[in-house]
Amino acid sequence: MTAILRHESRNQLKSTSLLGGLLVAISFFFLAVFPGIREEAEALEAAFPDILAGMMGFEELHTIEGFTSGWLFPFIWVLLIGIYFAYTSSSFISGDIRSRQLDLLLSNPVSRESVVLQKFASLWVPLVALNAVLFIVLVAGSFLIGETIDIFGLLMTQLLSVPYLLVCGAIGMILSVAIDRVGTAQAGAIGMIFILWMLEGVSELDPDYELLGLIAPSRYYDPSAILVRGEYVIVDAVTLLFGTAALLTIAIIIFVRRDL
């Protein structure tokens, strides 16, 4: 029943550890420059027009929480790791169609629904590992530069990012079942997450475009609100979970109906 999940989970280990290492390096870099930025934070906040600062999520840049949620989370977590989840899942099915791996896999007593769900479920590996790495690095790193970060706030910021990353994975899954060429699906996944992220940024700038941002997953995850202001918008997280379920359902419908 779970052979595919086990197998795919093992496949995630290598790229997850590579990305984990990269995450450690980037996080330490961010933390290393924080003491310098803290001095300049006021000037920096003043330099940005309010609207732009709001779009980027800059608040309380002189605190470690404001700095982390304003710089590290939007760029590294929401954009980069979001792209990674979509990119990874975009090759789950598409690569296996061309290489005829699915012919062998589906000669087993396993349904197409189960293939999609088990492959998607293997994202638990990067989800757990990268969250653990980020948490440890941020707590330890803050300590090293003489800061104390709000541990509960950090935990909530990471916990509430899980539905966001799952949506990114589900977007990749749709591309994976719909596109045969793995390179195209992967490029599509990168482009899609980037465009949605941009769309949300632009929609915050101009009220005329505000509705457009509603389709962007990053609309429903605001690290600054959580880490700086302690606002835990559970409705947003639930919306993202429903979005994940809906996207996965679409992916399954496409995959079940198509010729391989």
Binding site: D96, R100, Q101, D103, L104, L106, N108, P109, S111
Partner: peptide, 22 residues
Amino acid sequence: DRKALTAAKANLGYLPDHLGFE
């Protein structure tokens, strides 16, 4: 009948012409 076919595959061996192993 996809469900019935999936169950029947427990009793099937398949050697494809193009062997798509990982």
